[in-house]
Each structure stands twice: as C-alpha cells, then as structure tokens.
Design a protein around this nucleic acid. Structure first.
Lengths: 356, 356
DNA sequence: AATTTTCTGATTTACGTACATCAAATTTTC
DNA sequence: GAAAATTTGATGTACGTAAATCAGAAAATT
C-alpha cells in the first residue's frame, strides 16, 4: 500500500498535526523537527494524494483566458476550445473566464491583464502581443504570485511561467524547406504574407523562413512582406495586387491568418503557372483549399491541445508541482491533402458511456 | 456550488442510501423510484466527483501492456514510455504490468493475451499482430468484460475498444506525396522497405503509398517490396543488394523498423546520384541520419502520447465514462531536419517544484 | 526558578463518495 | 388480513488529506 500522512507520522515519531504543518508549510515547527519529518517522507517514499487533497480543500482553480477578438478562424477555434474546457470545469475543478480584446491592441491587452490581476485568479493564459507594456503587465501578475502561460504567441523577456504553442522559428524553417523542395527545378520569386510584425509568432516564422530560403534556396528571391493584418478583405486585395505585379511568382508562404482572402485571390487567377502555397492553421477554409489543390501544405497547431496543455500547466504551477515535459510540448502538424484528419466536432463525445 | 449526492436525495425526496443504490446500480430499488432519482440527477445536473469516488473505493487500475520484444528502437522507446507511466502509477492509481513477446509470433502473443486474461486486469493494451487467432484471443478478453486497446498496430475485425496509433494508410499516402514532390523532375524507380506483411500497420502504409504513387506519380516504378523483418543486419544486406542491382533508384520508402541497416547501406554508397529517403519513427539513428542529410523525412508517432492515451482510454472504458475524442487521436508527425524537436529525456522533470 | 514564548500532540470536523448494516415501511402474495 | 418478500430510510465507517482548536510540553527569556 501507498504510504499516507499517518505513515509519515509513525516513521518520523511525530504527530499527524506536525506532519500536516510540514507538508503545508505552516509555521510553528522547529527546524530539527521539520527535517526529521522531511527525511521520513523521503525514506518511505510518500507522495501526496492530490485527489484527496483537492477534495479536502474543495479546491477550484479560477483561471482567466485572454484572447484576441475579431473575425479570425483560428482564434475563434481557440475560443471554442476554451469553452469546451469550461464545459469540463465540473470534472476538472476549474472556473474559467474568457476575456476577448481587440487584436494587435497593446493598451486593451494591458488593461485586460490588469483587470484579470484584480480578480486574483489561480492563473492567467494569454495570447501575447510583443510589447514592453505587455511584458510589464505580465510581470505584475507574476509579482502577485499569479502563474501566467502565454498561448500561441510567446512573450520573450517576460517572467511568464510557460509557453503553450509551437516553435515558430521551426515552423518558418519547415515552410521554407518544403517550399524549396516542392518548387524543385522551377524558378521564380516567393511571396510572404504576414498579419502583423507586432506579434512574435509571425516575426519568428518569417525569420525561420528567410533563414532557410537564403541558406538552401537562394535561387528564389523573396518579395517584400505583405502585411494583411489578418484581415481577409485586405489580404485579398494585397495578394491580388502582388500576383498581378509579379505574374512569375512561384510560391506563397502565408504565415498569418486571413487565409480566406488569399484563397479568394488564388481562385481568381486563371491560366497562370502553378504556385506552391503554404499556409498556417487548419480551418474550414484552408482545409477546403488543401483538398482543392489551391494550397499545398498547411502547418497547424492544435488549439485543443494548446488549451488543455495551458490548463494542465497552470494547475501544476498553482500547486507548485511538476509537469510531464514531453506532454506539454505542442507539436507542429504538417498537413498535406493526404493526411488530413477527418473533420469532427472538437467537443463531441462518444455515443456510449455517460460522463460521470 | 456543484450538486452532490445529498442534493440528489433532497431533490428526489428519497434517502441517501437510495441515491447510492441508483448511482451504483445496486439491486433493491423499484423502477418508479429509480426513475425519480434519475430525473432528479438530470434536473440538477449532478456530475459524480470521480476523484472522491476513487478515493472512497481505493480504486487502482491493474493494466497489462503487451509489447514485442527484440532489438527495435521504436518498441524499446515504447516500453520506456510504459515504464515512465509505471513511475507515475502512484499518482495515476494504475498498476501496470509489462509483458514482452517475440515479434511477429502469433502463438506467443495469443498465450500472453490469455495469460493476461487469467489475471483479470482492468484493461489490456497490446501491439497487435493481424491474425484470426489473435482476434479470437482479444475477443475472449472482451467477452470477459476486460477493455482492450490496440497500440501502434490495429486489429480490424476484433472487438477491441480503441486503437491508440496513427492512421497508417494516411502515413503511407503522405510518404508517397512527399516522395513524389521531393523527386520533382528526377526520374528513376522507388524502392519500398518493409518489416513484415504480418502486421497491419506495415500493410496499411504500403497500401497508402502505392495508391498515391500510382495515382499521381506513376512515372516512378515501384520495385518489389523488400521484407527486412525489422532486423538491421538483414535490412542492410537486402538494401545493399537492391542498390547495387538498381543504381538508378531515385527514392526509398522505409515503412518498418531496422533503419540502422538502411542507414548503414546508404552510408556505404559513394559517388552515386542522390536518393530521396523517407523513413518511419524518430529514433537516435533516424534523427542523426536526418541531420546528416541521409534521410529526408521521418514520419513519426509519439510513443509517449500513445501510451498515455491508451491509459486514459482504458481507465475511461473501465469506468464506463466518455473520453475527449480529439485528445485521443494520435497524430502523424512529419519531421524534416528543420523541425526536429530538441532531444530530451522522455521522463525528465522540470527542476522547480516537487512531484506531490 | 518563574515566566513567557514557541513548539508539539491529540482530537475533531470536513470534503464527496462508497459500502455495509439494521430497522422500518411498503408492497406483494396467499 | 396476515405473513412474506421487497423496498426504503437512517446511520455509521471508510478513503487520504486539510484545517482548526486547545491542552500540554519544551524551549527561551528574564
């Protein structure tokens, strides 16, 4: 049988109350006694039963998720996943609040972070914008001992506890590697379409892409980056213009959102040479375009995994316990037409069994 | 506050004992009373607190994992992941037994399955071999109400509860798609290297690969399949012979294990035209070969995810509850040199915090 | 040595559920 | 309508931990 607090007490020759004081770092234990207890814990290999502890504490974890608002399929999918997690809150002992703020708006994000702090939650997950003000706001949370996880886009230089997202430099490198190889012998420049250089994930993808293109596929010139603000209408206009200006374009790397606009622009092209298109995030639009052959590769991060991982990490940080490192690494999915997963509701439940 | 059994009793106007009888499907409750209680449960939205229930029951889940033995990096990595899970058993309330049986040996596997059944565990996970005898043995387990999850290689036609592994047809299709595009204009036949056509995953990968090659890249002839039994020495011999016999080979798809042999054979080749190599499973050998440019793509399934998923599903099946479908879908990782994850111990723990 | 302060022990209640026992009420059967 | 069978209620204990109270012991201070 697994040792309990009673076994610690017996092994250390102290009372249950003293064991409890040591375990829960309460005051009123002499250092010698504390060490005696800690040695006993070590010796008998005691591991706290988290389930029982949570039960006794009636623990719930109030978390705040801060996401960009707006018409962005990926972000709306992310929000849907957070809401799915809210649906599981009874089982997972969470109490999650979702806050949306206008995209690429530093002041709004800082205000949301500060407001979250005022509610003193057990943790905050945030899709970060790279800015000194945001870093300061995150560090204020951390100064108040509130764990912070960045979601999707990281915030280097801040004291955030963890980043739940993909390695975006690797994503950019991968895009370049696939682009170069898919183009094979073909010549022609490559266009890059981004949302905004304000967010770190976009910048990192661009860096990775540029590095590998320059290193291995320098035959393809890179056209100036198109900044579409993740806005489909704007993207469509800008891409259309770029395609008209450089009809010899061989490839397009779309590293942000607003892919609906890209797809619309591609559809309007007729009798033109094939273009290798690599885009990010699997949405209904990119999925359809992949199936139609308009897009060649979709690089994806699984929003559901990111949300679940963020929650696990926030819980662990709130409790001061370790996490399974490998489980929390968010992987970059590479989707071709051939390995598209079946479409399904993100929060469907199997027919059999009842959630209890 | 979340409703408890007491709330059900109050809402239904019955005693706690009756609620307990209904919840745990004990005898001695009239149908009308049972329905009254069930309606109350529905009405107040009661969800059983699994942690408290497990605590009260002192529940542990005895599971058996049956894996192939032998010198196969992927399978050994899988076993390591199972042992890592054993290390978490105190926290996860599991009691896992690992059984290894000779690879591709139907009788040994059937014997292991029957022996597992004799111990009446709460669930069995097995790397299956496709054979009527194995199907029968799995169905015997299911007949004894023991949940079964197939791991890595599925067992179609059996009554297994779940498959924790990748879609291998999609994997084969993806390999073909990448192979065809990477070869670009180059001509030459493509060789396929398999372990054994006895296991379903290898057969499915081959099917998917052949289909897409025939459909889109028929310019490349497929050489007869080389069956290397996942044995590095044998593989090296056979691949060396094949390369000598057909020096114009443009690509190699290695869909099984024994990649050490493949890599050795490739290294011995000098002054020959480049070959596009796509292999399965990220091991220290394939990782190094990818970095050296000997292998172009590694398709991978994350053994850690598979093991953790198998455990989650077995628990859920044992308890008769639902699982998060999307979370249990094992994804196919596509690794290029550019998106290789950092090497790390599979069961390392962060420095800060203590597991309690 | 007496007093104050700090530390430790003993005990109890609680968390939400499982499970067992026995008495009481209700229904069924003859 | 009485006896038998079934159903329901009341109650207590247990799981492993948290948290509180209060008495008593041990140290530190005077």
């Amino acid at each position: 049988m697994r040792p309990t607090v009673h076994d610690i007490a017996a092994a250390a020759g102290v009372s249950l109350a003293t064991v409890d004081r040591v375990l829960n770092q309460r005051a009123g234990v002499r250092t010698v006694t504390r060490e005696k207890v800690e040695q006993a814990i070590e010796r008998i290999g005691y591991v706290r039963d988290v389930a029982a502890a949570n039960l006794a504490k009636s623990r719930v974890y109030p978390f705040v998720f801060i996401l960009p608002s707006g018409d962005n399929s990926f972000m709306r999918g992310l929000e849907e996943q957070v809401r799915a997690a809210i649906g599981r809150s009874a089982v997972e002992r969470t109490d999650i609040t979702v806050v949306t703020v206008p995209a690429f708006n530093v002041e709004a994000l800082v205000a949301a972070l500060d407001e979250a702090r005022a509610g003193s939650p057990a943790g905050v997950a945030v899709v970060a914008i790279d800015s000194p003000d945001v870093i300061a706001a995150v560090d204020r949370l951390r100064a108040g001992r509130i764990p912070v996880v960045t979601l999707v886009s990281d915030l280097a230089g801040s004291k955030r506890d963890h980043f739940a997202g993909v390695d975006n430099i690797a994503a950019g490198r991968t895009a370049a590697s696939l682009m170069g190889r898919f183009l094979g012998g073909r010549s022609g420049p490559v266009a890059v379409l981004a949302g905004s250089m304000l967010v770190r994930d976009h910048r990192e993808r661009l860096d990775g892409f540029r590095t590998v293109m320059a290193e291995h596929f320098s035959g393809h010139a890179l056209l100036p980056v198109i900044e579409g603000q993740d806005d489909p209408a704007l993207v469509e206009k800008l891409v259309g213009k770029a395609l008209a200006a450089s009809p010899e374009i061989a490839g397009i790397y779309s590293l942000g959102a607003g892919n609906r606009g890209l797809i619309a622009a591609l559809k309007r092209r007729v009798n033109a040479a094939p273009v290798c298109v690599i885009a990010h995030e699997l949405t209904q639009h990119t999925r359809a375009a992949l199936n139609d052959g308009l897009i060649d590769v979709v690089l994806n991060q699984d929003a559901g995994h990111e949300v679940r991982s963020a929650i696990r990490v926030l819980k662990a940080k709130a409790d001061g316990v370790a996490v399974i490192g490998a489980q929390e690494r968010i992987r970059l999915d590479i989707f071709l037409k051939d390995n598209l997963p079946f479409e399904q509701d993100s929060n469907q439940a199997p027919a059999e069994g009842r959630q209890d």
